[in-house]
């Protein structure tokens, strides 16, 4: 898990941005896995909610909820705030 220390030099900022890019790709993988599980995974379950088969709820509301959790986790635990302008950097 990221230590959340704000990077100072230009090189540190790039290193942080690279870590965030990797975290983003992992987030994508997680989203895809949930997307498969909530849609195709529920396709054979014979339950209806409000006239809809369960997989439809998973594929729409479920995937939507997952994506929101994913971005909140990304922001909270992996993305770090720093100054984008070039400050005193050797």
């Amino acid at each position: 898990m990221s230590t959340k220390v704000s990077p100072r030099t230009y090189a540190e900022k790039h290193a942080q941005a690279n870590r965030e890019a990797v975290a983003t790709v992992v987030a994508l993988a997680v989203t895809i896995a949930c997307w498969v599980a909530l849609g195709f995974g529920l396709a054979s379950v014979d339950v209806r909610i409000a006239g809809l088969p369960l997989w439809v709820i998973g594929a729409t509301v479920g995937v939507y909820a997952v994506s929101i959790v994913v971005v909140v986790v990304l922001r909270r635990f992996f993305f770090v705030d720093f100054d984008l302008e070039d400050e005193a950097d050797g």
């Binding site: 790039h14 942080q16 690279n18 965030e20």
Partner: peptide
């Protein structure tokens, strides 16, 4: 997440 900060910097 992928492009944002790299492009900004």
């Amino acid at each position: 997440g992928i492009m944002g900060k790299k492009m900004a910097l």
